[in-house]
Structure formats: C-alpha cells, structure tokens
Design a protein around this nucleic acid. Sequence first.
RNA 1: CGGGGUGUAGCGUAGCCCGGUAUCGCGCCACAUUUGGGAUGUGGAGGUCGUAGGUUCGAAUCCUGCCACCCCGACCA
Length: 493
Amino acid sequence: MSKGLPKRSEDYSLWYNELVKRADLAENSPVRGCMVIKPYGYSIWEKMQAELDRMFKETGHTNAYFPLFIPKSFLSKEASHVEGFAKECAVVTHYRLKNAEDGSGVIVDPEAKLEEELIVRPTSETVIWSTYKNWIQSYRDLPLLVNQWANVVRWEMRTRLFLRTTEFLWQEGHTAHATAKEAMAETVQMMNVYAQFAEEFMALPVVKGKKSANERFAGADETLCIEALMQDGKALQAGTSHFLGQNFAKAFEVKFATKEGGLDYVWGTSWGVSTRLMGALIMAHSDDNGLVLPPKLAPFQVVIVPIYRGEEELALISVKANEIMADLRKAGISVKYDDRDTQKPGWKFAEYELKGVPIRIGLGPRDLENKTIEIARRDTLTKESFHWEEMPIAQKIGNLLEEIQEQIYQKAFDFRKENTREVNSWEEFKDVLESKAGFLSAHWDGTSETEEKIKELTKATIRCIPLDQVQESGNCIYSGQPSVGRVLFAKAY
RNA sequence: CGGGGUGUAGCGUAGCCCGGUAUCGCGCCACAUUUGGGAUGUGGAGGUCGUAGGUUCGAAUCCUGCCACCCCGACCA
C-alpha cells in the first residue's frame, strides 16, 4: 500500500534506510556519517529519554554534565582504554580561522595551534574520573552515582542511520563505590534497568548476559549487556553496563579513606544506551507498510481523521472529534486531530501507517449517524466499527493501547524464540547460520582463540554468555574441548 | 582504509558508450470537480547535470582530483 517502500524480504537494509527517511525519523547531513534527527524521530527519542531518566533517578542517580573536549593526555592514562578508542577519535588542533589571502574563503590559522590537542569525547570515563579525583576523599563521599545525557563522536569507518553514526546521542552513567561487591551490584542493577526499559517500553525482548573477553569494553573488567534479535536474524547490542574494577581509579589516582582508616582505590562502573535504540525499535517491529511503534513510545498514540464533504460537515464532525480528544487526553492518551483540508483521507491513512501511529480513528457522517467510530490498529492493520455507547471511548482506546503494547512484545518474543536454536556440531552451526541466522545456542571452550577463529570463519560472534545459562557439560562446537554451558552466537550489527 | 557501484529539479529517473544546453513520473503552485484506502482534468513554476580543474569551437556526456551515499571487506562496547 505504501508507495514503493522496499520489501523486507527483498532487501532488508534498503527497507531500513528508506523507512528511516520516509517515516521522517532522520536523514543524512552534509558531514559524512552524521545524521539530522527530524522532529518526529526526535520525539520518540525524547520519550525514551524521559522514561530512562525517571528510572535512573528512581535508582538514586543524578544528572550532571561534563565537557565535550578531553585533553589528549587523559586518554592515554588507562592502557586498554586508549587502545580501544584511539583509532576513532576526532581531534581539535586549532582554535581559530582566518580569511585566505587569495580570497578563496577561510583557512585554519596556523598561528592558532593548540599546545595540547583536544579529543572530542568518544566516551567520558577519562574526563569524569579526573574530576572524581577531587570529589572523593572519604568513604563518606561514596557511592557517587552520576549520569549524563550527551553527544559523543566516534570516527567509524562505516555508518548507518541510528545504528552506527559518527556523532550520536546517549546517556552515560559513571559511578564510584567503596567495594567491588557494591560496584558489581550497581553494574547488574543498571543492566536490569535497561532490560526492563527495553521490554516494557520498547516491547523488545532482550537476553541479559555477560560479554566474552573479546567483546568487553576497553578498560572494563566485566561487561554486561542486553542483546536483541532483529527481523533479519541479526543481533543488536542494545545496552551495556561495565564493571570497571579499580582500573580508572588507579589511572586517575582516585583513592578514599576507608571506614577502617586505610586508603584504597575506589571501584567504578559505567553504563550507556544510545540513539542506536531507535534502530532497534524500528527494526524489531516495523513491516513493509512502514513503522510500527509501541504505544508507550509513540509521539502520539491516536490520530483522528475526519471524513467529510464541505465545511458544514467538517464542523459537525469536529464537535464530536473534540469531545473524543478531550476524553482521551483526560485518560492520559496522546492524540492528534488531523483536520487538514490539504490532504485526502486515503492519503492520511497511508501516511500514519508509514509513521507507525498505533491507533487511527476514522470519523465521518456515517459514524455520526450510527454513533460509531472506525478504529484501525497499526500493528495488525485491522479495522473495527465501535459503537460509542458500548463503553466510554477512552476506556476502549486505553484497553486497546495496552493490548497492542503487549501483542507487539509477544510477537517479537515469539520471533526470537523461533529463531533461537541449539546447535551441537560445527556443520550444524555453519548450516543454521547460513540458512536461518538468528541466535545460536552452542557450547564454547571459553578461549579467545576459538571465538576469534569462529568469527573469522563465519562472521558470527559471541553475543553474550546468558545470565540464565544452565550448567550443562558439553563439547565446544569448534574445538571439541569441554564446556560447562551454552553461549549465544549470532551475526551482529 | 581496500574493492565495486551511484550522484541529473524537493524525490525517483532517461540521456553518457558515440560531445551540440536535458527526458519522464511523483511532488510543488493556480483553478475546477472531488473527499469512507495514497483523486481527476487543465494550466504553470522549478536545473551551477555532486564539486574543482583539464581536453575541446562546444562537456551531463571524455580525462583527473576531491566530496557524499550504497554494497562487500577490514575496523568497531
């Protein structure tokens, strides 16, 4: 129905790119790899932010803001951290431009070279830990529970709207604790917050787990994550929570006086989710007609489209429409009334389908006469005629929104279940990966060498060692060495 | 960063091999008829052919550099 949106089955990545642009979520900017997030797309992000922010505060965190620029020397203080990020940093070397003498425009003023170059933050551990040094002296200053909403820059070689962009928006939490146990509890807690957000609000089922050493964050002792499965059978890392041990405390000399009178390095965590969640949201639920949004994150949950001939008829319909809107708003349901005369109803139907509005209400003279409204669901593309004396419209719509939220989750959950397969031999592993993709649950000997080899041969990586992994003895799919449980493999974004 | 492809009106495109100032559709503007699944007719506006050079009497077309996007690879919490 939608004019020429590519089919998922024919070209999944083309479908994704076109959908992002046509649904008015984002577009490319003149700068390579950077995106313009358009108002409709940004309002979805704002909904995500609002909910996550609420959850962070509920768990005792407060927001702060640290600078965009980081002195180059900071980055090298934590050895594995610099190794992980050095290759993708944007660097500021000068602070002034001047007019070119030949009148061809502005050039960098060579006189204005910075003594120490500045890195545009790829993540803020270094600048934050250098600040924490001054904030923490005693166990009384702990725990320190801070989050920031910010933009970061990573000079990626290959970019895709939302999934991997040069600049992206995210939140990064950075906490400091007196004990390893407490820091680890924080790391687990935040992974759980992310999982809860993904499942309840994004309607996205996720697997909670631990990263293998290969996939661990640069500078962390342990990385926990939530992994989701997209409709093309590829996995997407949706959020990470890192236990930093004392690595950054040691690199930045952050010590505290313990209750017992000793002096110790503090224990740290960091955790983040980014605009990549937008990519996950789009790919998890949408179809060949366009976006499908879970009601809890839709910029507006209901759109009312009037069907009329002439102004008098519109006026009559608008009276009823306004009444419905007031009822819905009173019930906490967000609604838009599209009474533009510049587009026809059919055009609007297609438009709101493309944009994933969960419920569309059609209201015309026939409805006024019969005391009905037409309710169309985006997720199932079904329509029903509802008699408004049957029950209050707000109650009907409220119930339906809840049902949609649930069913979208259930659909994604079933899809993941169908596409998570236990495999027990190397041949089977390669075959399933090739023909069906999805998550592969398989035994692994626990070594980086094996993981590396499997990645090289199949492009599949260990997405995580699931938290609910069952202890089960078996043999590594590749090396045949003994294994104590299955891990989750997949090709990933 | 390596290999391949693409760049022509807001969007999608023809023309390029074989050089002579650009085709078609959607969209846009005006008017009329329309309005329960992307309306129809008539008239109209809109172009540094990605960009900078070169070859030529003449370049969208041939040559070179650069930029951006897409695909594959490498890289990547």
